[in-house]
Write a protein that binds this DNA or RNA. Structure first.
Lengths: 155, 155
DNA sequence: TACCTGAGTTGCGCATCGAAACCCAGAACA
DNA sequence: TGTTCTGGGTTTCGATGCGCAACTCAGGTA
């Protein structure tokens, strides 16, 4: 087994998270869910699939499994976002924002993204390094000159 | 078949794009690929899967199929991003940015996001509506008060 | 002792995936 | 006129993976 890493960052990312359930588990984790039974009940996911996904996500560094013990109870497992998992907040927000505009729910969105300081609703957008907004139509994906020219090796 | 729409924007979005190949086809489309054979060769995707995905993406409004005829050639098919598909640029960029930092390639990234006006490298970030950057740790997902409280109906 | 609850595991039928092979129409060639 | 080439697919078929339902197992509770 040669276990080739794709050259494309999008492809490497998708190797870890492209699954629908993985995204939804991440959504729940970002909303504060940590326990197996809560993920199962909130998402309506089959327990074998959930166990499978959680293990894969721990394996790939998106979640950490902790054992904890509340007073007078036995130890339980909980799953917490790692910094890498936290950083996917931006991806989740981008997906959500797209869904809000392109496949809207008649009754309006169920979840907002809000700035805890100002209470403003937050958007995801392109910016320059110094924080100026860039209109999407001015953003291009540009292969780097030294990169592998053969597109088929990008995956 | 009741064909229920999930209440969660992320879930509704994932119904259209959660598949790994769908994302990679979108990446290629954003790089300018329009023809069946080019998608097939650049991605190394089996033609049945490609045909399947392209049809689904046309069906869900991410791509449009055009017939065109170059001088002295027969008509050919091409696939072009719709505005909705264009808007997924932000999601692709967010995935790519995450991959660049959390599963980096030793030889550096293969594709950059660049502002065609200033030539600056572009980042994806949270902003307020008036364009100020918001640090990710200050962004929370907040269920709207009137929304369905029962999380299990969100999907 | 029996029961409950959280956190899974196992078994099984069905759908989907993907590799390889095949197909078909139009142009180009001979 | 027939053959070949190429783009854009379709068909076949075996392997994988999904989700439901049922079961397990350990610790705490009545």
């Amino acid at each position: 087994m040669t276990e080739t890493q794709p050259n494309c960052s999008i492809a490497r990312t998708l190797d870890l998270v492209s699954d629908r359930w993985t995204f939804l588990i991440l959504r729940e984790a970002h909303l504060g869910t940590t326990r197996f039974a809560d993920f199962r009940d909130y998402l309506g996911i089959a327990p074998n699939i959930l166990a499978n996904r959680l293990a894969a996500m721990v394996e790939s560094g998106l979640l950490e499994k902790h054992e904890y013990r509340a007073d007078g109870e036995r130890t339980r497992s909980s799953y917490h976002l790692t910094p890498a998992g936290e950083d996917l907040k931006l991806v989740l927000a981008a997906l959500q924002q797209w869904g809000d505009t392109h496949v809207p729910r008649k009754a309006g969105p169920t979840v907002l993204r809000r700035d805890t300081r100002s209470n403003d609703v937050v958007r995801v957008a392109f910016t320059t390094p110094d924080g100026n907004a860039v209109p999407p139509e001015n953003v291009t994906f540009e292969p780097v000159p030294k990169g592998p020219a053969d597109r088929s090796t990008w995956r």
